[in-house]
């Protein structure tokens, strides 16, 4: 109860739609049982679930911690953007972290790292790189038989959630992050900032009203990182790890996926025009170089070009 009375420092907005089991694991990864060096009163997790025939539901969500708040919404459009803006509007923390995809679980230092970065620079942008569980990107693996069962086997293999950093051992960098840790890349599933910065940005753009929000997340990330006086901290040794759940771009078969991509791309071009390059911002790296991240650090170093 006490944790609900005190204002948390960070409000994490987690969007859930048709992925109850994955979201439950993500919520576990956000709980104090799994996160290092933080207390429940330091942060809150705002779950916003758009209605579907496969609901996570309040009971399962709230069971993950005393700092979880659950909202069930009816949504008329096939997009998470309204759910995100709603979640942010009820946040009580001085800072916000947006997780657009509830199927992405995180490593144990994400929250502490974000709080460290905001102590360092209250108006910073903070993110963690994205990964896919499995030995290939899931949009490729799905064509080769990858499914929830295979993934469950991988998670058993690393005894998840015993040591959350072992997720690195069974994952690959997301396509949008394959440029590594020394550049901003395209997006993140953990995008954090001050609430003031969020208001300045006007939240996520509600015009992204198509499947999965289309490029709303990329647009938010780019606008945040390129906004003035916003140093960008990358929690390079943490990550968010996508679980397979039949999502729009990560879990459908090739032909269908390409059709959807085209549709989303057309809408993005309509909204943003032709300048959709990744943010040209160099990250400040923050985090412990634990053994599981080193092979990705080495990969990232091969992607650096002379400035």
């Amino acid at each position: 109860m006490l944790s609900l009375l005190r204002r948390p420092k960070l409000s994490i907005v987690l969007i859930v739609y048709k992925m109850p089991d994955q979201a439950e694991r993500t919520l576990h990864s956000l709980s104090v049982r799994y996160q290092h060096g933080v207390r429940e009163s330091d942060y809150e997790v705002i779950v916003v679930e758009n209605h579907s025939d496969r609901l996570l539901g309040a009971a399962r969500a709230l069971a993950q911690g005393g700092n979880v708040r659950y909202h069930h919404r009816q949504e008329t459009e096939r997009t998470p953007v309204h759910a995100i803006n709603f979640g942010a509007s009820v946040a009580r923390g001085s800072h916000l972290a947006i997780m657009i995809d509830g199927a992405r679980m995180v490593t144990p230092g994400v929250i502490r790292g974000a709080l460290d970065a905001f102590r360092l620079e209250p108006h910073a942008a903070v993110s963690a790189p994205g990964y896919h569980i499995g030995h290939k990107l899931q949009q490729v693996a799905v064509n080769e038989g990858y499914n929830e069962e295979v993934e469950a086997g991988l998670l058993r293999q690393i005894n998840w959630p015993e040591n959350g950093y072992r997720l690195f051992d069974i994952a690959v960098l997301s396509g949008s992050c394959r440029g590594g840790f020394f550049q901003a890349n395209y997006e993140s599933n953990f995008i954090a900032m001050s609430r003031r910065k969020w208001r300045q940005l006007g939240g996520v753009n509600p015009r992204y009203n198509d499947f999965g929000g289309g490029n709303a997340n990329l647009d938010l990330y780019k606008r945040l990182l390129e906004s003035p006086d916003t140093p960008f901290y990358l929690l390079y040794s943490e990550g968010s790890f996508h679980q397979f759940h039949g999502g729009v771009t990560t879990g459908t078969l090739k032909e269908e996926r390409e059709r959807v991509y085209k549709q989303l791309d057309d809408q993005d071009r309509e909204i943003r025009g032709d300048d959709r390059s990744p943010p040209s911002v160099r990250p400040i790296l923050l985090g412990s170089p634990h053994p599981h991240v080193l092979r990705f650090l080495e990969h990232s170093l091969t992607q650096v070009r002379p400035q």
């Binding site: 790296l285 923050l286 053994p291 070009r305």
Partner: peptide, 27 residues
Amino acid sequence: EPLLLGQFKWPATRFLERSAEWAQKRF
């Protein structure tokens, strides 16, 4: 266990590369 903090300039990256290799071996 160190916490790394920094914005890496190109000339420093070759040293970080070696550091990552050595650290892997040590671990």
